[in-house]
Design a protein around this nucleic acid. Structure first.
Lengths: 209, 209
DNA sequence: CGTTAGTTTAAACGCTTGTTTAAACTACTT
DNA sequence: AAGTAGTTTAAACAAGCGTTTAAACTAACG
């Protein structure tokens, strides 16, 4: 395994578990069994390393996700459950791509929205706009009465639900184990959240005041 | 204004905007116009300062919130909209208690769940269990078919929606202004999120697989 | 074999972090 | 007026941070 990949792997799991700010380059290179200076040699800086970790996943995920969402748009009259279920397979495919891939990626996404004052949010929305566009199209097709303004709000609420849930999914899984004696996986968390966000986005249009 | 309160005020706004890890004691004491050592003298450590910032809000909020939720339980058959609407007044009352209080508090709550590996979650759930208990009771009364396990998940999803939305409420309000020419307040955001979370929590129980 | 480009290494850099120290200052009591 | 408890202050502390340097190593090519 190349030094570059050893760094990426170690950085990924540490970033996911402790956040970007909370993880030092010395922890990363220590876990990767690699010299400290290797990060700056191969990636230039810590910030570029963060981007590289995210890009590795996004390049794998975004074509699959766009494809799945386009497929939903071809259904006669898709439900919102259909729309959100389109995320399942692409997300779970990250587990074949890498051990704990799905979980790590979703946690990283959550970190990216709260750590680092949103520079990662900017990076993702500008580098991978196709995902969002196809998602909006799919929601419009399954709930045409939803106004653009209401859509805007509900998609942000949904983003919040998913990102927040996934960034603390480890803790949630642990609680589910101790309180309900359930051995859950990240895939169970994904399946659990779908009815919730589908119902939220599908809520009736509120009456104008 | 006492040194202690100057520190609390500065820490609160910096923590809300940059996170706990992302804010140094020197930034705090600088903004508070107070000597660096004053933090350790008055609070003992940075960790204790974080707790103190949160406690100041929780002590103000939790009795009002518990009262409002208990009132909901006395309604004949409360809707989930009733339950979540019970949060509006207590949360907005934080704005009278302190400038930007509502917004700061909700952002801090979000930080507490992602920064610092969840020690703040532990702190809040153990120190202020009454809020959660009354909230669960109210939801149970308005949706008795919801199992305890499903309730656990949906309440966490709701927490995510609210916390994430509020922590980025400034950005959302700005976008609503530029895209839809709407002049919104934090109270409008709160009212906007209520139908979403009410529908999410009220989603039909999924079929067992 | 010698050269060269690419990579790894140990050490140090300058800077920031949270915390501690001991002296200075303040205000109230005896 | 002297003493004392509480508070504020400047300075230093040890530790950790991201980054840089220059020397050592590796492997392939002419």
């Amino acid at each position: 395994m190349s030094t570059k990949n050893k760094i990426l792997d170690a950085a990924e799991s540490l970033f996911a578990n402790k956040g970007f700010n909370g993880t030092s380059l010395r922890e990363i290179t220590g876990q990767a069994d690699v010299n400290l200076a290797a990060v700056n040699y191969h990636f230039g800086s810590k910030k570029e390393l963060i981007k590289a970790v995210m890009s590795r996943y996004m390049n794998e995920l975004s074509p699959r996700l766009e494809g799945a969402l386009r497929q939903v748009c071809e259904i006669e009259s898709p439900s919102l459950i259909d729309v959100f279920s389109a995320f399942i397979d692409p997300l779970l495919s990250l587990n074949k791509f890498k051990d704990n891939g799905t979980s790590n990626f979703l946690q990283l996404l959550g970190r990216g929205y709260t750590d680092s004052q949103g520079f990662l949010r900017w990076f993702l929305t500008t580098q991978y706009p196709g995902v969002i566009d196809n998602f909006v199209l799919a929601v419009q097709k399954s709930y045409p009465e939803l106004s653009a303004e209401e859509m805007f709000w509900r998609l942000h609420f949904t983003m919040g639900t998913v990102v927040f849930t996934m960034s603390s999914s480890d803790a949630l899984i642990a609680i589910a184990k101790s309180d309900f004696d359930r051995e859950l996986q990240i895939s169970d968390v994904i399946r659990n959240v779908i009815p919730y966000v589908a119902a939220g986005v599908g809520a009736p249009m509120p009456l104008k005041r």
